[in-house]
Design a protein around this nucleic acid. Structure first.
Length: 420
DNA sequence: TCTGGGGTCCTAGGACCC
DNA sequence: TCTGGGGTCCTAGGACCC
């Protein structure tokens, strides 16, 4: 059996922890640039706000009706997430952290010896009392079913946040009332394809044999079907798996035309990406950069330009990565367009300990590079100051908007809540 | 005026090889 | 007039996820 523990309206709940005055009030959290709504407290959901809705469309109405809003504060959310995961790990060491706000617990080794209902409510209570985060828990024989059980726990208050799907008949009865699009792994596209051949709910999908149909369905769908039948196909992934790509991209606070400003933004993102790469103990061989116009603005001429560079030697040196990204920019930049976003993607990793060196081992250059990067990282990590590279610029005219951010209550000594 | 960011996996099709 | 068969590897792009 797997348990899926999922935090309710995670970002909004994080904001409420340190603001008891916001209890029972609608709270939403916005994406970068204060662009759209990405988390809504139950009260905000009731007001009809939709996930991903552009903020400017709802702003006035929402605020006039007493709604409270925050820019995203990822430092806070990451820290709260760690605390949640640590507590879960104490309940069940075999944990698979799936995202910032949810984790699968593999209960296989001791499900026979514990009362699942009690286990679930204990977890829930602990997270609520010790951290202040409300969660929903779904337990079922496979991850896909646990996901569905979780959704049910969340949507129907009668279950008090916990749903356990165990015996065959309950599962069948339950699946009959689930639309296919609600299933983990079935998106808009697949839902339509299934509808075209007459499959509308999860039970029908469960009884479907994709191999017998003339349509081309991929192995992904077959896996989902088997999972619905109770056959676990999505195992416990090793959470320590290294990343395969690192992306840093941002929309600009305003539209940009000048190459000079793009250069700063691209350099900044490249530097950030290199930093992340070093923390992963990896080196990359491919650097990709892109710039694009605003796809939502029909009035401007559209452009999406991207290219990549293959490096001869794998690296995580900020200087090389920044330089490569700028070479790409020189290449892809076209005058006369208005740009709204830029980004850098690193890929093709080798871990930074073992890779093919030249005949005579490490060159002086690479030792110097490693030492320099280490010092840069230390300065930034300890917040002694901020070490950056000249080309990354100081003007920051492209920086994003983040006007209503809460404090870093748990990670910054000067921002600790003050209750006087 | 104002519409996020960061990932993974899979597949088709091209290049290349014997 | 006639022009094989089978394989691997890589990449771009699609679909999906939170």
């Amino acid at each position: 059996m797997f348990a899926l523990v999922d935090c309710n309206s995670f970002y909004a709940s994080c904001e409420k922890i340190f603001r008891p005055d916001l209890k029972n009030k609608p709270v939403v959290v916005l994406s970068n640039n204060d662009g759209c709504v990405i988390a809504r407290s139950p009260e905000a959901k009731k007001m009809g706000l939709i996930m991903g809705q552009p903020w400017h469309e709802v702003k006035n109405n929402y605020l006039n009706n007493g709604g409270v809003v925050f820019s995203s504060n990822y430092e806070l959310y990451a820290d709260i997430s760690n605390r949640v995961m640590n507590i879960l790990m104490e309940s069940c060491p075999e944990i698979d952290i799936y995202s910032i706000d949810e984790a699968f617990l593999n209960l296989k080794s001791y499900e026979k010896n514990i009362d699942l209902v009690r286990f679930a409510f204990d977890c829930k209570r602990r997270l609520r009392e010790w951290i202040g985060i409300p969660v929903s828990i779904g337990i079922a024989p496979t991850k896909t079913l646990a996901k569905l059980a979780n959704k049910m726990a969340k949507d129907d208050s009668r279950f008090e946040g916990v749903v356990i799907l165990k015996d065959e008949n309950t599962i069948k009865h339950f699946l009959k009332n689930i639309n296919t699009e609600k299933i983990w792994g079935i998106g808009k596209r697949m839902e339509k394809n299934l509808k075209d051949i007459g499959i509308d709910n999860a039970l029908e999908l469960r009884n479907f044999n994709p191999r017998l149909s003339g349509n081309n369905f991929s192995v992904v769908l077959e896996r989902t079907i088997r999972e619905l039948r109770g056959q676990a196909c999505i195992g416990s992934e090793n959470m320590l798996e290294p990343k395969k790509q690192i992306m840093v991209s941002r929309s600009f606070g305003r539209s940009i035309r000048a190459k000079r400003v793009l250069r700063e933004a691209i350099s900044f993102h490249a530097g950030r990406a290199a930093e992340k790469l070093r923390f992963e103990n990896q080196k990359c061989r491919t650097v990709t950069a892109f710039i694009r116009s605003n796809p939502f603005n029909e009035k401007v001429r559209q452009i999406y330009a991207s290219k990549f560079i293959e490096l001869v030697h794998p690296t995580n040196d900020s200087r090389i990565i920044i330089k490569s990204a700028n070479q790409i920019l020189e290449n892809i930049y076209r005058e006369g367009y208005t740009y709204s976003k830029a980004g850098v993607l690193l890929s093709n990793f080798t871990d930074s300990f073992g890779y093919q060196m030249n005949l005579f081992g490490k060159s002086q250059d690479s030792i110097k590079s490693e030492n320099l990067m280490q010092i840069v990282d230390e300065i930034n990590l300890k917040e002694i100051s901020r070490a950056s590279f000249g080309i990354q610029g100081f003007r920051n005219t492209w920086r994003m908007k983040r006007e209503i951010k809460s404090k870093r209550y748990t990670t910054k000594i000067s921002e600790i809540p003050n209750t006087k």
